[in-house]
């Protein structure tokens, strides 16, 4: 099996005018999703990204700026590593992402593994 990275983008819950019940319902969907992937033995890891402390280092002088200040729907909220046989299967798994209706999306990328 190959490994794939899911990069989750979309607005942070704090930015949405979201009721606690809705947030809780979504959290529950996430818990169920992770549980389901774990049961299938294809969940490897996952982490949220801290929003407030991002910096961008760029240019030949390695200039440090605050950010990235992407538009909220492009904000990266976190990532998963999952196992799948191929990209199509990985995409099928990604369709379980609970936050599509909140304007979120999943970038599915295969993780390069060195075999030598």
């Amino acid at each position: 099996m190959k490994e794939f990275m899911f990069i989750f983008t979309g607005p942070y819950y704090e930015d949405l005018d979201m009721s606690m019940e809705t947030a809780q319902a979504h959290t529950q969907k996430w818990f169920n999703w992770v549980q389901d992937l774990t049961n299938k033995g294809i969940y490897v890891s996952g982490k949220p990204l801290v929003r407030e402390s991002g910096k961008v280092v760029s240019g030949k002088d390695a200039v440090v700026t605050d950010g990235p200040f992407a538009e909220s729907k492009e904000l990266v909220g976190g990532y998963f590593i999952i196992k799948a046989d191929n990209i199509d299967d990985a995409v099928t798994v990604a369709k379980g992402f609970p936050d599509f209706e909140l304007g979120g999306s999943v970038h599915v990328r295969e993780v390069q593994v060195m075999h030598m």
């Binding site: 704090e14 606690m20 947030a23 979504h26 949220p48 976190g78």
Partner: peptide, 16 residues
């Protein structure tokens, strides 16, 4: 408090 909960939901949903 609402913001704190949303932050929690945002973070905890990643298996955290």
């Amino acid at each position: 408090v609402q913001e704190a909960f949303l932050k929690a939901a945002q973070t905890w949903k990643f298996n955290m």
